[in-house]
């Protein structure tokens, strides 16, 4: 899916470089059109996932399970949120403002 958005992917990388310490093997999740792209990704343990909001509407990235390990601040247009996934597991998350927006990180 990410290959469908080459421009977005490169923009995202730029923002990450600007706003967050860069990691060569960061994995990007784009928030666009009230959807997480890709909605589900599988990454090795130790991977940092970076979400970037491309909508004109604020979104969040919040753990679907309790306790909420993942909980981003509100992400305005262009904002990014990064989280390191050290432990294997399945992490379901959603946007707490638009709860129909859901995604999954599978950490192996």
């Amino acid at each position: 899916m990410r290959h469908s958005y080459p421009v977005i992917a490169s923009t995202c990388l730029f923002l990450v470089v600007m706003a967050l310490p860069a990691h060569a093997d960061d994995v990007a999740v784009d928030i666009k059109h009230f959807t997480f792209y890709p909605a589900s990704i599988t990454v090795p343990a130790g991977t940092r996932v970076v979400w970037t909001n491309h909508d004109d509407t604020p979104h969040t990235v919040v753990d679907a399970a309790e306790p909420k390990v993942i909980r981003s601040p509100p992400l305005d247009t262009g904002d990014s949120y990064a989280r390191l996934f050290a432990a294997p597991g399945i992490y379901d998350y959603f946007c707490s403002l638009h709860p129909h927006m859901q995604g999954t990180i599978v950490v192996e």
């Binding site: 679907a64 379901d92 998350y93 959603f94 707490s96 403002l97 709860p99 129909h100 859901q102």
Partner: peptide, 12 residues
């Protein structure tokens, strides 16, 4: 009423 907090994944 306040129906905008503590929303559930996949919910309304």
């Amino acid at each position: 009423l306040n129906n905008v907090q503590d929303l559930k994944p996949g919910g309304l």
